[in-house]
Nucleic acid binder design. Structure first.
Lengths: 195, 195
DNA sequence: TACGATTGTGTGCGCTGCATACATCGGAAG
DNA sequence: CTTCCGATGTATGCAGCGCACACAATCGTA
């Protein structure tokens, strides 16, 4: 009763918590994503989220899983056609680093926060990224063993993202970061390396 | 003045705090390195460390700086002579990943914890790593521009370390991780790539 | 010997994650 | 249509955290 939005039960508190968490990450960009802040944001008591998330790690893992899916989409959008040349690969690498620099709080939640290792949602989202990368290297390097190459490519772009995020490199302008990423990729993948 | 070890003033509380912090990192391996726990460990009141560290970030940064120096030594020890072949490079990469897996708490403090960006000690220790890597690629790839190569090599090993640490790869045995690292390095640096 | 800077202590505030007990509601069984 | 129970949100409380502040002890120096 009373007003529709004021009922005792929220309706979909789980989704509301995830949305609140995303908003908090975008806003203060801070690493301090607290369960209580999420509850406040969702307009609910401090312990209500525990009905939907076992503990803080579970919430973080669910948020991170959304981030992994976002990242996969972002990479796919950066280069729709299957990449074939080092330039194509560099585009993907730049997109990976851009994601980290544009959404640093989310990226840290995804890769630098304690998380629930038993979260199926999280594992599935990571597997999707891995599959995307394997397909990528399979297309770009048809004749070669995709396993070590996929590992190397992921590590390369991931390391570039983290080192930029940590302030190890100058990131005052996006172009500077993009150029450095392209140079690094081209240093490892000369023009003749692909199919 | 009572017993020598029981005086009011500690003598070298700053060093004692750093030592306590290292011990805590080695023991519970936890990411939860708290200023209060450090103070307890050092046998001192909870707020005493504030006389030597402006805030928690400053303490973390000082601990991280020690970690950077440790890492540099560890890499240098892994391959004393200047590396020349992809195998040599792979040795360094394996050492980098081993450091992360052997001392995960320290590694996370170094690269996944908010820190004081104005810490000179921290900046100097990072510059030392960077210099080591530059010297490394200069020796291994004499004819080529060292800048993008150094960036790429650091990103590669750093990404490998982080992805292993995050459980993205199987690390049940050290050999497995080492083999994967070697494979990845060799995939990017075929035998003829060096001088 | 007196004194001021340095260094450690004690207390307190608001925040956090989380365990526990309680209140409210919605839907299925009778 | 009523009843009741499981699902969902609330209230309260605890220990730990970073940190600000006022106070005490000590050391070096004049």
């Amino acid at each position: 009763m009373s007003h529709p939005g004021t009922s005792y039960h929220h309706g979909d508190l789980r989704a509301a918590c995830l949305r609140a968490a995303r908003e908090l990450l975008e806003e203060d960009g801070g690493a301090g994503l607290s369960l209580r802040a999420v509850a406040r944001r969702a307009g609910v008591s401090p312990t209500a989220p525990y009905r939907h998330f076992a503990d803080r790690d579970a919430l973080i893992s669910a948020v991170a899983a959304e981030g992994y899916r976002d990242l996969t989409e972002h990479l796919a959008a950066a280069h729709p056609a299957p990449p074939r040349t080092p330039d194509d690969l560099a585009d993907i690498a730049v997109a990976y680093v851009r994601f980290a620099l544009d959404r640093p709080a989310m990226f840290k939640v995804m890769f630098a926060e304690p998380c629930d290792p038993s979260s199926e949602e999280r594992a599935a989202a990571i597997a999707a990224i891995s599959a995307y990368l394997h397909a990528l290297v399979r297309g770009a390097f048809p004749g070669r063993d995709p396993e070590p190459l996929a590992t190397a490519v992921w590590a390369l772009v991931h390391g570039l993202a983290f080192l930029h995020l940590d302030g190890k490199f100058d990131t005052s302008t996006p172009e500077q970061a993009a150029d450095r990423v392209r140079s690094a990729v081209h240093a490892l993948f000369p023009a003749g390396a692909t199919a």
